[in-house]
Design a protein around this nucleic acid. Structure first.
Length: 806
DNA sequence: AGCACGCCGACT
DNA sequence: GTCGGCGTGCTC
């Protein structure tokens, strides 16, 4: 009986979002497994695409002629049964194509590249042969990078059947290799060889002894050289004499940090609360209980130690563990701490790795050589088997939600995998998301509390400065008198300061004082931002860039000035006010180059600067004992945003940045500058009172029917013409309204607050609901229909549980 | 996606 | 007349 395979092809469209049936060639009968990558012919001609085997059958229910699988790309599956199931669930949950989900779960190098070749099959005239084929039988065919005329001449030859297009799917997933050596003789034979050597041939004698010690093994040549202190030349002689053979061996492109893991760190002593937390988690691991814990602990309460010891307990049960950390706080500090504890058993996955390194880390996990995975969002897809524990640190972080398709939330994927493995999930945070905290309240999650800072360190004292009052006393400035004085005190005491600029919804722009003209992006409805380092005006949405004008393009006045607050402007002002201060600036501009992020942090850690000035990215995970002052320059720019999570985000940010002050033995101080000193988010952050904040915010959410009382889904439509976008969103609105009736609340349609981005107009609808069965059905239908609309240049995106509403 | 097929305008 | 523009439909 011939074998049949169900294959998801690598063509991300709605129509092809289903398995296609192929014949398994004779020679691979019963060799092919689910989850393998293959190439298959797809469509007319001999076009080839990559695909994933998702099913194997004895017979097909497709009644056309079946094509055959073309080739296998690996000998083992790249997706195991669990991840195959997960991809299906995720596609359904996020309204994405299954193939897109599969690629999201795998390292980039497993995404194949297809190439086309033109092959001569008949005589062509000499001019064509020389000019088009440069005297070759076969050339690569890249129509988009060839002159139009060349392409049409080639296509004409194809029509005349003088050339043929062949397709090739390139497998980019190539392990790196190094030269290895392997002894070719037995111990006795080597002894015989030794007797043929002259007394001076010391090096060769040494080589023989070395080879005798590694019989049956293959050793990397570079390792062999360092271990044996034998030169390369001698190994070459050994090869010539037939003592050893050189052969390529696979090596891992391992990130540097991993290689030096000699001094292992011991477990720290736990306080009572930590010990209780670890034992609750460990009990769940023991009993294979799929339970979710909310580990709520103030900054500095030792959550990481709880994670590490819980992971150790999972390892003790021969199980594996995943620990997710937000990308932004995936600092060398955290990574090295985990590596010092678990050594080579750890694989690290973050955006700083090259594609090759990511692939190799992935393979180490897949082969079971690493049992602990630490990484950012996508590490939740690590191909670990037998997972005993999953941890999400800083579980409230919005970066756990991917903001492009598939719009998955790592927390939801974590829940799914934890359930699959009957394993506990630990969500940790000082300021949990309201969703998680509410579930803990209702005992859906088990709450674990860490209320003490370790070493009995006091919480930093927080003062709120009313910037409205400041304005009455001196000219406009980003710095209050109090903040400046405190900064100066730190410098004189040899202590350090972190200053944070809350950049969300804020930046510097150019305005003409005479006519009020503001320089706008030609593609987007947003003002351009001034960048002093490159001396250009940039659009933060589409990347458009132009020179800074010195006369107003509108009224030709020279009175054109910049307004607003950017980190550069703040830095300049600070340097003027405190000339002796050594300032390090950290923002998108100074950290764009790879490794700059780490470099700046290292400099600050070495006390090469007194002040670290930056945006949100400095709020998280930094731990410098010498920092005793934290200043937030503008606490409330986020509060004014039309987003129901604005207060929550502000509270979280202030709490987090406050935690940076006063570690070790020196007490910390925090200064929050604001125009809304009485706002509850600011007042409660000042008093470190999450519980009260939770209470107030829950009331507001309840009144507004917002999460966690209701679920939300956002639908966005865009089109180059505003009318088309509006028309489409209104018809979608009507479609949903008709289908849903009273069970859901539909907000909108409204234009998005930045209505035009990249020459496209954006309109949106937000749906609030308690029960989603019908909605899910309707949205799936909408997805299917949207394929037709796409051809009209309409783009539709469905975002379940969106994190931002602006 | 990427390819073929088919229908319209503007050139050798 | 034909070449080539793109709108439409299909891929086991």
């Amino acid at each position: 009986m011939a074998e049949i395979a169900q294959i998801i092809v690598d063509v991300p469209t709605m129509q092809t979002n289903q398995p296609y049936t192929y014949q398994v060639p004779e020679e691979w009968q019963h060799q092919i497994q689910r989850g393998m990558r293959v190439t298959v012919p797809f469509g007319n001609g001999s076009r080839k695409v990559q695909g994933f085997v998702v099913g194997l059958d004895e017979q097909s229910n497709y009644d056309g002629e079946l094509k055959k699988i073309d080739s296998l790309m690996e000998l083992t599956p790249v997706l195991n049964e669990e991840l195959l199931d997960l991809s299906k669930w995720m596609a359904n949950e996020t309204f994405a194509f299954q193939i897109t989900c599969m690629h999201t779960m795998l390292p980039n190098l497993l995404k194949a590249k297809t190439t086309k070749y033109l092959k001569l099959v008949d005589e062509v005239n000499e001019t064509d042969f020389d000019e088009l084929f440069h005297g070759l039988e076969e050339i690569e065919f890249i129509p988009e990078s060839m002159p139009k005329e060349t392409v049409s001449r080639l296509l004409k030859l194809k029509k005349e059947q003088k050339v043929e297009i062949t397709y090739h799917v390139q497998n980019r997933a190539k392990p790196k290799t190094a030269v290895g050596i392997s002894p070719l003789m037995s111990f006795e034979q080597f002894e015989e060889q030794r007797s043929t050597l002259t007394a001076q041939a010391k090096a060769q004698n040494k080589l023989l002894s070395y080879l005798q010690s590694i019989i049956g093994q293959t050793i990397k040549l570079s390792d062999a050289r360092t271990n044996s202190k034998i030169s390369n030349a001698t190994f070459t002689i050994g090869e010539q004499k037939g003592w050893l053979k050189k052969l390529p061996i696979e090596v891992y492109r391992t990130p540097i940090e991993l290689q030096k893991n000699s001094n292992r760190e011991k477990e720290l002593t736990l306080n009572t609360e930590q010990a209780d937390a670890v034992s609750s988690i460990t009990d769940a691991i023991d009993q294979k209980q799929n339970k979710t814990f909310l580990l709520e602990g103030v900054t500095g309460s030792g959550k990481t130690e709880v994670y590490l010891q819980s992971i150790q307990n999972a390892l003790n049960h021969n199980q594996t563990a995943i620990m997710l950390v937000p990308e932004i706080s995936l600092t060398p500090q955290i990574v090295s701490r985990v590596e010092k504890r678990f050594g080579k058993d750890v694989a690290v996955m973050h955006s700083g790795l090259s594609n090759g390194e990511k692939y190799d880390e992935w393979r180490r996990i897949e082969r079971g050589e690493a049992h602990v995975v630490v990484g950012a969002r996508s590490a939740i897809f690590a191909p670990l088997k037998n997972i005993g524990l999953i941890i999400l640190d800083e579980e409230h972080e919005t970066s756990y939600k991917q903001d492009e398709t598939p719009r998955y939330h790592a927390r939801e994927v974590a829940k799914w995998r934890a359930k699959y493995h009957n394993a506990p999930l630990v969500l940790g945070s000082a300021t949990p998301s309201l969703e998680s905290r509410a579930r803990a309240q209702k005992n859906v999650y088990q709450q674990l509390m860490l209320t003490h800072r370790i070493n009995k360190r006091p919480m930093p004292s927080v003062s709120v400065v009313d910037m409205r009052e400041e304005l009455k006393h001196h000219t406009e400035s980003n710095f209050s008198t109090q903040l400046l004085e405190e900064v100066q005190t730190r410098i004189s005491r040899g202590e350090q300061t972190i200053l944070m600029l809350n950049r969300r919804g804020y930046s510097s722009f150019i305005m003409c004082r005479d006519c009020g003209f503001v320089l706008q992006c030609p593609n987007c409805d947003i003002s351009l931002t001034l960048h002093m380092d490159t001396h250009t005006m940039k659009c933060h949405y589409c990347g458009h860039e132009e020179p800074i004008p010195d006369i107003c393009p509108n009224c030709h006045s020279h009175q054109i000035r910049y307004y607003g607050t950017g980190t550069q402007k703040v830095e300049t002002e600070l340097q003027e006010k405190i000339p002796e201060a050594r300032i390090l600036r950290m923002d998108v501009d100074t950290t764009r180059r790879k490794g700059m992020h780490e470099k700046i942090l290292r400099q600050f850690g070495h006390h090469d600067a007194d002040i670290l000035l930056g945006t949100q990215m400095i709020a998280k995970g930094l731990d410098y004992p010498n920092v005793t002052l934290v200043g937030v320059l503008n606490a409330d720019t986020g509060l004014g945003l039309p987003d129901f999570r604005a207060s929550e985000h502000t509270f979280q940010l202030l709490t987090q940045v406050s935690g940076r002050a006063g570690r070790a033995d020196k007490p910390g101080q925090v200064i929050i500058q604001t125009y809304n000193p009485d706002h509850y988010a600011i007042q409660l952050a000042k008093h470190h009172n999450f519980e009260k904040f939770f209470e107030i915010e829950m009331q507001l959410r309840h009144r507004g029917n917002y999460p966690p009382y209701y679920y939300t889904t956002q639908i966005t439509v865009s089109h180059p013409e505003e009318k088309m976008a509006a028309k489409t969103i209104f018809s979608i609105g009507k479609f949903l309204q008709d289908g849903l009736g009273q069970e859901c609340v539909i907000l909108g349609p409204t234009p998005r607050s930045i209505a035009r981005v990249n020459r496209r107009y954006f309109y949106q609808i937000v749906i609030k609901y308690k029960h989603s069965n019908k909605l899910h059905e309707l949205l799936t239908e909408l997805m299917q229909r949207s394929q037709k609309l796409t051809k009209n240049k309409i783009q539709i995106s469905i975002d379940p549980d969106p994190q931002y509403f602006i």
